[in-house]
Design a protein around this nucleic acid. Structure first.
Lengths: 336, 336
DNA sequence: TAGTTCCTTGACAGCGCTGTCATACGTGCC
DNA sequence: GGCACGTATGACAGCGCTGTCAAGGAACTA
């Protein structure tokens, strides 16, 4: 910066003022400084300025992986939004429990970011408390956290609407397949199951817990086993609502392989509207992770820039039923 | 840090030494300092230390999007690797040309990172030159850049091997479908086409440019049109090699819809081994983006830590043919 | 013309660390 | 006992910026 100042024949203060776009700089001086900066390829060191301003200009993001439709879409929307606000995006990828423990012990983001976005982590009380005194705004994405800012999709309503769609088609035996992760069920998982149950209750369909099964989506064998459990019931379902599109796609493949036509003999409904839903012409309940990323970004910027902002604000995003080719009217019951 | 020093009853210098793990600290003092730091939840400000050490402790990454199998897998592998080296990962998502122009004009990474990883950008000469005097190591991923460090997959060999597979199955009319992006063809695109052509030449199959068509993978209509062009040839192909799995999947759907059985009447081969390949039981040529991310990470750390390291090193990663269910022997030629 | 105000600019301290140098304190040796 | 040496610790400057304050000059008013 001293070099730029010298070249432009002004003081460092003036260079700083110019480069930050402050108003009190005469046009000719501004022009000289800008040119000098350009000629010297000068860029302000964020690290030096953060030292004095106390703001880092960084938004940190905590994600379990980047290798998923949801994360990819959300962060791809978040990135440009932050850049437009002249903020940097630093990402902490925490794939396993060991990394997770070390992250929460060290909290490397402390003092190195202005805010933290926590994506799709179902935090323990202790972890949440740890984040609470991180000294920066924290926004929880894809989960509800009481008293803390969060952004999530209305899983309950989405699953309720999806289930209603199946009910309207005449289905009464409707199964629900949950996605079981390494650490159990996610926030969304619970919400979607609840929505399914609500819709059934609404329609006076008796609850049958045997119709609810679970499997990890990436374990195809487990998915087939879960399906087997449903098909071997005394009164098997005529429709399956999968908590996720990948699960739905696995189910469709398994059903077709065993000669059970979809949707003629079995309707299948997914959730998410991932690209795989389009490949399989899958009826599904859509959510928009890019909207989620965008909203989370706006919220986090607001929390950073406005100390008055409500730090416990919730934003709930809508879902939409996307009927495609894998749901159809229930087959007429075989004569008993 | 002053607080920690006071609490531990030592000077700031000693705290700094302790926290950086330098050797000349007596065990009892070290213990006291560590406890004080823990009690105060103290974390060193990277920004302050970078100011004096001149190292930021961050690796910047430039990506066109995060919403793709390749980027997701690569960065999910890169992240933990950098964390293990106590480096932060900042991501610049540059989805369109306007952002791109502004990125290369401002080069926000300048002085704010220790190195830059450029993923899957086919840079102009000018852009490359701009990065050259960025003042930090730059590693090009998924592209070859003369005289600059780069990591990429052996597209030529992969496509050659894939094409050989089809030739061995007796195919002679083999089409190649390129993936056309908004800005034309990628580095990989050229390599894969070249490998295809080499294998045909090897087998003395005459080159027929009508068998090479292109479409943007996300534009299903364009893919169908490209397929139509192939099917309406005087002598249509009996096998199609798609530059990408998504393209292959779209082709399979279109073929099956028009009653052309895959693989009985038409073999289809993909490239990448994305999850969609598994869904479609697609024969393909696999590459490993997570290996790519890992190797790129190791390379970049080496360049940061060892000023002697060769800044023009290339790492070329292998591919593997994964035969599945969409390639089969060529149908016997109809009697002419 | 002198006084007042506003606008532009520069000087300087200090943000939180680290690296260098100096100091203090054992230890071992002749 | 005196000296050299090694190890542990502290004092202090300075990294590259920004915020504050003061100074200088132009413009305007009486």
């Amino acid at each position: 910066m001293a070099d730029v100042a010298e070249r432009a024949g002004v003081s460092a203060s003036t260079v700083s003022r110019t480069l930050r776009g402050l108003s009190n700089v005469s046009p000719d001086v501004r022009a000289r400084v800008e040119q000098a900066a350009r000629e010297l390829n000068f860029a302000v060191s964020r690290h030096a300025s953060s030292l004095v301003t106390g703001r880092t200009g960084v938004v940190a993001v905590l994600v379990p992986t980047l290798n998923s439709w949801f994360m990819g879409s959300a962060l791809s929307a978040l990135g440009p939004l932050l850049r437009a606000a002249d903020m940097e995006l630093t990402v902490y990828v925490i794939p396993d429990l060991a990394e997770r423990a070390s992250f929460f012990e060290q909290l490397p983001a402390r003092r190195n970011a202005d805010a933290l976005l926590v994506f799709s982590f179902d935090l323990t009380e202790e972890e949440g408390a740890r984040l609470d005194d991180l000294g920066m705004p924290v926004v929880y994405v894809s989960q509800h956290a009481d008293g803390r800012a969060s952004v999530y999709v209305d899983d309950v309503a989405g699953a309720r609407n999806g289930t209603r769609h199946l009910l309207h088609l005449g289905h009464r035996r409707i199964a629900f397949v949950q996605s079981r992760g390494a650490t159990g069920f996610s926030f969304s998982s619970y919400g979607r199951l609840l929505g399914y149950q609500q819709a059934l209750a609404e329609a006076d369909v008796p609850r049958d817990d045997a119709l609810v099964v679970a499997a990890p989506p990436e374990d195809k064998r487990a998915v087939v086993e879960a399906l087997g459990a449903l098909l071997s019931l005394r009164e098997p379902p005529t429709a399956v609502f999968a908590e996720q599109d990948e699960l739905a796609a696995s189910l469709i493949r398994a059903l077709r392989r065993s000669g059970i036509e979809v949707p003629e003999r079995m309707s299948v409904l997914g959730f998410d509207d991932q690209p795989v839903a389009d490949w399989f012409d899958l009826s599904t309940v859509s959510q928009s992770p890019s909207d989620m990323g965008r909203v989370a970004g706006e919220l986090v910027l607001e929390l950073i820039n406005d100390p008055e902002a409500d730090p416990g604000r919730h934003v709930v995003l809508p879902t939409h039923l996307i009927p495609r080719a894998t749901t159809a009217p229930a087959p007429l019951a075989d004569p008993a």
